[in-house]
């Protein structure tokens, strides 16, 4: 080799990179959501698959067009658009029309991501932006819940909606009776609700793998769920400390939201301490909405509201400088 041999590459250190990459993380999360999708197919019927596919298509096509229009390299393969589509579909009722799912995916990517400058610059979780947009635009379609295994598409209210009505009538005895579902039904997802939020077991399976791969950490989910549990134990009963916190933890979109959406990197805090604060905040807002707000479910709004405070949390949870005595 001579000095003029320009085949040698010189780069500054480090010369070793880990195997992790954005596409790998995104596709893995998408993969971990599959069990829940399969369960929804079994419980609500095969039509849910088409809803998921239309939402993903809406997201992907919008991403494709916007990349072209902005003359930026195509970012489809990093999987974030697909993931947004799946997450949005999981937040839709099982009988949503396909056009609505498509529109939701498209809005999620355009309003939630592209307008901010693409992946990494968005301040709100795109999938939740999509969901909230649909909630505001088509409230009736967004709250039509079929009963599990419903053959004739009979509608049945979600456990939380039943609970909300029952909560007003204080003369009802125990809360499991109000909602007609047992804890194991709730855990396995045999209840009304959004496509992907029902089966806790399937969601936890996927989340366990993500934790094992260190793609998500437990700070946000645990503090989120823990806060909801404690808060509802204190306030959701007929007196203080008499609430049935298991119902609140197991129903609604809490598990999906806590493990898959509140843990979103881009819109959540950076440090461990910040993540704890974020989780507790999400939990508090969720309970406020569930117990005293206008909607039966508050996870989406809670996460979106906490996304707004993320920069503030980051500012106040800067790690202590090494070697500094304070």
């Amino acid at each position: 080799m001579t000095q003029e041999d320009t085949k040698i590459i010189v780069e500054s250190s480090p010369h070793l990179r880990s195997e992790e990459s954005i596409p790998r993380i995104m596709w893995t999360v998408a993969l971990c959501l599959i069990p829940s999708g399969v369960m929804s197919m079994l419980v609500f019927g095969p039509a849910t698959v088409w809803i998921i596919i239309s939402a993903v298509l809406g997201a992907v096509i919008t991403e494709l067009i916007s990349c072209r229009l902005r003359k930026k390299p195509l970012t489809l393969m990093d999987g974030s658009a697909v993931l947004t589509g799946i997450l949005l579909a999981y937040n839709l009722p099982p009988q949503s029309p396909l056009w609505m799912a498509f529109l939701g995916g498209s809005v999620a990517i355009f309003l939630g991501k592209v307008l901010f400058g693409g992946l990494g610059f968005n301040i709100f979780n795109p999938a939740l932006i999509g969901r909230v947009f649909l909630m505001a635009s088509f409230p009736q379609l967004m709250t039509r819940w079929p009963a599990p295994f419903g053959i004739d598409a009979a509608t049945a209210p979600t456990p939380l909606a039943v609970f909300k009505d029952g909560f007003a009538n204080t003369n009802i005895l125990t809360q499991t009776e109000i909602i007609n579902y047992s804890y194991s039904d709730l855990f396995l997802g045999l209840r009304g609700g959004c496509i992907g939020e029902a089966c806790i077991l399937a969601l936890l399976l996927g989340a366990a793998y993500l934790v094992y791969k260190q793609y998500i950490t437990l700070e946000v989910p645990l503090s989120f769920i823990g806060t909801v549990g404690i808060f509802s134990w204190i306030f959701s009963g007929s007196g203080f400390f008499k609430g049935d916190f298991l119902i609140h933890v197991l129903s609604g979109g809490l598990i999906l939201g806590a493990f898959y959406m509140a843990t979103d990197y881009v819109t959540g805090p950076i440090t461990k301490k910040g993540k704890l604060v974020f989780g507790v905040g999400c939990g508090l807002i969720t309970c406020l909405i569930r117990l005293w707000g206008g909607y039966p479910e508050g996870v989406s709004y809670a996460i979106l509201l906490m996304n707004v405070v993320t920069p503030l949390i980051d500012r106040f949870t800067v790690p202590k400088r090494f070697g500094e005595v304070r």
Partner: peptide
């Protein structure tokens, strides 16, 4: 002007 090596960075 000749390159001594390929700079990547």
């Amino acid at each position: 002007c000749k390159d001594r090596f390929l700079y990547r960075g």
